[in-house]
């Protein structure tokens, strides 16, 4: 214990703030992941289905979805935080705490999620879609039986990448008062020069990322036939 207090004195001193920060980070990660998946998946399906050469080509729907995704992917995340300020206030009536982070996190993640899921669906060989059409499948049956089911490992791989990127963005929202591990690194590590806290925050983030990666890889193996 003495060695620890010599090595990371401030971490020991402020140990009580860590659990909440970890929980906040995990809540933000989970909410962002789930909501952006729920919204990103239909968007991805819409893009795959309506693109030129898709099963129901529609130039306008494709063009709008594609452009919106590109637009939001292009906005740097730190700009998205003030940009979403109004929406955040309107929904949550607050601009601090983890609730304040949901809107920019989710808005920033949906396009990324949609692109990852889209490219997983694009990996399904066109011939499989063609075979499905030749069996007499409806558009909806092709979506539910082929696009959503035939490249689950690819989707999991994409989601893993998204979640790891979200960890980085959660650290950023921490800097503007949203809480979480990023918040600790800024308030203690940076503003109070407690570099041992920064270091431990880094370790914790790396552990979270490794767990996500490990679990993602395991799921990919489980679902690959």
């Amino acid at each position: 214990m003495d060695t620890l207090s010599n090595l990371i004195p401030n971490v020991i001193k402020f140990a009580n703030v860590f659990p909440q920060a970890i929980v906040d980070t995990l809540i933000m990660l989970t909410v962002t992941g789930v909501v952006s998946f729920i919204i990103g998946l239909p968007v991805a399906v819409l893009v795959v289905v309506t693109k030129p050469g898709g099963i129901k080509p529609n130039r306008w729907i494709f063009w709008i979805c594609d452009k919106i995704i590109n637009l939001f992917r292009a906005i740097p995340f730190v700009i998205l935080i003030p940009l979403m300020y109004g929406l955040t206030r309107a929904i949550f009536h607050t601009s601090i705490g983890i609730k304040s982070a949901f809107v920019p996190l989710i808005v920033g993640t949906i396009p990324f999620m949609a692109r990852q899921l889209e490219s997983a669906m694009e990996e399904i060989p066109e011939g499989i879609v063609e075979a499905s059409t030749s069996m007499g499948m409806t558009c909806w049956q092709i979506i539910t039986n082929v696009y959503l089911k035939q490249n689950i490992p690819g989707m999991i791989r994409g989601i893993t990448i998204v979640l790891i990127a979200v960890i980085g963005q959660i650290a950023i929202v921490g800097t503007v008062g949203a809480g979480g591990l990023g918040d600790l690194a800024i308030r203690f590590g940076w503003q109070r020069q407690m570099s041992d806290i920064t270091f431990v925050v880094l370790i914790l983030l790396l552990i979270i990322i490794s767990v996500i990666q490990f679990f993602g890889d395991w799921l990919v193996r489980k679902t690959t036939h």
Partner: peptide, 11 residues
Amino acid sequence: MIFQHFNLMPA
């Protein structure tokens, strides 16, 4: 219909 590359559902 059958195809050159079989086109079975991999999953």
